[in-house]
């Protein structure tokens, strides 16, 4: 399914979804009250919520007759992990190169 294939970056690339996460970072909201903040159809809001849910950015809880969206760490953690890996990649590789060349000069 198309929705399942979005990675964390594609998820947060959408301004509406980022706005949803920002709203939810202040307080958990029902799907209805979240939708009030957006000038889009209810199915469109639901689709974004499903994307956020699938990527682990939110959980959905039924409280009474309402469905509540609550922020969840998983998506954010994956994002942070990826950034850390990427930032580190060349630094750690170049350290290895440095060590190799140092070894070489010690032998000579």
């Amino acid at each position: 399914m198309e929705l399942q294939r979005l990675d964390v970056f594609q998820v947060i690339a959408d301004p509406s979804r980022r706005h949803m996460l920002q709203l939810l970072s202040k307080d958990s909201l029902t799907i209805n009250s979240l939708a009030e903040n957006f000038d889009m159809s209810r199915p469109a809001v639901s689709k974004h919520i499903k994307v956020l849910y699938n990527a682990g950015f939110i959980s959905i809880q039924d409280i009474g007759r309402e469905r509540h969206c609550i922020l969840k760490q998983d998506g954010f953690k994956q994002l942070q992990e990826w950034l850390a890996y990427y930032d580190n990649f060349w630094g750690s590789k170049l350290q290895k190169l440095e060590a190799l060349l140092n070894e070489r000069s010690n032998k000579q």
Partner: peptide
């Protein structure tokens, strides 16, 4: 596909927001 959306998103200051949100989430758990 993989990188550009992220770079675009980060350019809007989203990275800072993300750190804030993550911090808040960590604090609550």
């Amino acid at each position: 596909v993989g990188f550009m959306p992220m770079v675009d998103a980060m350019d809007t200051g989203w990275l800072q927001n993300m750190h804030k949100i993550l911090k808040a989430l960590n604090a609550t758990t």
